[in-house]
């Protein structure tokens, strides 16, 4: 009788302690952050009123500002994003081939390539933009390089992962016919990763469109420069126009990428 009345529990005692410890750490981190952060109470109380004021100044957007300055900046942003994405592949493809353990047999080269990819990913595109503005001076060149250098790590990592998952069969078959390495890559490896390749390229291009819109804030060209100027001059109806333009291009890019991906993959 007693056996039937046994109480069932979902977790073992160790699991329960672990869960409580996790909750405790989360709460502790939150309390630490809330106590440490410097928030001025007047600003917080004032925030809703100020937000409404800002929105009222932005409305209605002055669409007359769109042509020609905003339009030209928007086209420049598109060029920065597209060219940066293309440019990143020049470095990302060799690095991915070097990082994939089944393609490149040298362990030291794998590690070196992985290190290069991690470095590229750890530095944000805005920071890359600051660096390239210091090197090339303000302008679209700095933006293009910033986008490219940030993308290398992302594209390279995903390509290397795709490469490591391919089946070795076709490569071995080609090697058995005496084909040189370049043929093995082109006909044994490439057909297996080309869907992943185009998918990664489109995905990164979509991200880069969003990112290149803000590079102008540090002087690296594109629509961010126009946005920064408009904000500094308090031309809020112009700011609204620019934000609408960015929103439009981002949504268009996302639709285009979704359509293309459905056709390619």
């Amino acid at each position: 009788m007693n056996a039937l009345m046994r109480e069932w529990q979902r977790f073992t005692p160790a699991e329960r302690i672990g869960r409580w410890a996790a909750y405790f750490i989360i709460v502790l981190a939150l309390i630490w952050a809330l106590r440490g952060i410097e928030i001025i109470p007047e600003f917080l109380a004032d925030a809703p009123e100020q937000m409404l004021d800002l929105l009222a100044r932005m409305w209605p957007p002055h669409l007359g500002h769109y042509h020609p300055a905003v339009h030209e900046a928007l086209v420049e942003t598109l060029h920065i994003a597209s060219l940066g994405t293309l440019f990143s592949f020049i470095f990302a493809v060799p690095l991915a081939l070097m990082a994939a353990r089944n393609i490149c047999p040298y362990a030291w080269l794998n590690t070196l390539a992985q290190l290069a990819l991690v470095t590229s990913r750890s530095v944000n595109s805005l920071v890359w933009a600051l660096i390239f503005v210091a090197i090339f001076g303000p302008g679209a060149a700095a933006g293009t390089f910033a986008i490219a250098f940030r993308s290398i790590g992302f594209v390279g990592k995903l390509l290397a992962e795709a490469l490591e998952e391919i089946s070795p069969g076709p490569q071995e078959a080609l090697r058995a016919t005496g084909a040189p390495d370049s043929h093995v890559i082109l006909k044994g490896v490439w057909p297996q990763i080309s869907p992943a390749f185009w998918g990664v390229a489109l995905f990164r291009w979509d991200i880069n469109i969003r990112e290149s819109a803000v590079l102008g804030l540090v002087g690296a060209g594109g629509i961010g420069v126009v946005l920064d100027d408009a904000i500094n001059f308090f031309q809020w109806d112009r700011v609204a126009t620019i934000l609408l333009a960015i929103l439009g291009i981002v949504i268009l890019a996302e639709i285009l990428v979704t359509k293309l991906r459905a056709r390619l993959i």
Binding site: E38, I40, D53, A213, V214
Partner: peptide, 25 residues
């Protein structure tokens, strides 16, 4: 949700800085 996602967080940050002042908030 789509609206929240389509503006880059740095742009959102600029707008909040203008609206509620400089700082961590």
């Amino acid at each position: 949700i789509a609206f929240c996602r389509s503006l880059h967080y740095v742009i959102v940050a600029i707008l909040f800085v203008k609206a509620i002042g400089f700082g961590a908030l």
